[in-house]
Simulated scan of single mutants.
Amino acid sequence: MGWTRGIEVPDGERWNGNIHYHRLLVEAVPTGGAVLDVGCGEGMLARRLHARGARVTGIDLDEPGIEQARKQSPGGEIEYVCGDFLTHPFEPESFDGIVSVATLHHMDAAAGLKRMRELLRPGGTLAVVGLARDALPRDLPWALAGITGFTWFRLTKTKWEHPSPIVWPPPVTYREMAAIARDILPGARFRRHVMWRYSLTWTKPPV
């Protein structure tokens, strides 16, 4: 139906491949707890989490994105940090939930998951939606399904273009990402989704 961009577009009128999977993350992490949004961009997911009662901190390296996020939360109800998630001095085990959308492929994925594991409290939940690379020809059916699904949604929705930097292609394949997750987060649930995304959920074992 078209393309839109800019913070003047209400959250409820926005759609793209990342926003499509926000619900998976919102439903995965606890309400009422402290939640970290890694690679928060202009803050749409952080706002959804806050609306469900979470105490949200968003972190992103992109300063213009963080500025847009702060403009959309003028009351300061969400804490936004412009910085490197891998090195910012968060206290270990200080979050009940950690979420991330389309961010792990911007960094070393293993280092990112280890850092999330370190910051998550025992009993807390980590939920990621990420992008990986098709390995052709094995992944051709998934690629075709992605094209079909994306085309359908483009015909029925107006695509919102996010302001954050883009990294393409992702450095690891879906199979490699699943192996990384299994190695670092034993018992994690890894699922592949139609529109070039995977989801990863893991609950840190209680002490």
Rank of each mutant, 00 (worst) to 15 (best):
M1K: 08
W3V: 11
T4V: 10
R5I: 06
E8C: 04
E8N: 13
P10A: 06
P10R: 14
D11R: 08
G12D: 15
G12M: 05
E13M: 09
R14P: 05
R14Q: 13
G17M: 09
G17D: 15
R23A: 13
R23V: 06
L24S: 07
L25V: 12
V26S: 10
V29P: 01
P30Q: 02
P30W: 02
T31D: 05
G32S: 05
G33T: 11
G33E: 08
L36P: 01
G43P: 01
G43T: 00
A46L: 06
R48T: 11
H50D: 06
A51L: 15
R52P: 07
R52I: 07
G53S: 09
A54L: 03
V56P: 01
I59Q: 01
D60S: 02
D60Y: 01
D62T: 05
P64A: 03
G65T: 05
A69I: 01
K71S: 15
K71A: 14
Q72W: 02
Q72T: 02
Q72S: 04
S73C: 14
P74E: 02
G76F: 00
I78H: 02
E79M: 12
E79C: 13
Y80L: 04
Y80Q: 05
C82F: 10
G83K: 07
G83N: 11
D84S: 14
F85K: 13
L86M: 09
P89Q: 10
P89G: 13
P89C: 13
P92W: 10
E93I: 02
S94H: 07
F95K: 11
F95P: 04
F95G: 04
F95V: 10
V99K: 05
M107K: 08
M107N: 10
D108N: 07
A110K: 00
A110W: 00
R117I: 12
R117F: 11
L120Q: 08
L126C: 08
V128S: 05
A132I: 01
A132H: 00
R133Q: 13
D134M: 12
D134L: 14
P137G: 04
R138L: 08
P141C: 00
P141H: 02
L144K: 02
G146L: 04
F150Q: 10
F150A: 13
W152K: 15
F153I: 08
L155H: 06
L155W: 07
T156V: 11
K157D: 03
K157W: 03
K159R: 15
K159G: 10
W160N: 05
S164E: 05
P169L: 11
P170H: 09
P171D: 03
A179M: 05
I180M: 12
A181V: 02
R182V: 11
D183R: 15
L185S: 13
A188D: 04
F190T: 14
F190H: 12
R191M: 13
V194N: 09
M195K: 10
M195A: 06
W196K: 14
R197F: 12
Y198R: 00
S199W: 07
L200P: 12
T201K: 03
W202Q: 00
W202I: 00
T203G: 14
P206R: 11
V207A: 12
V207I: 11
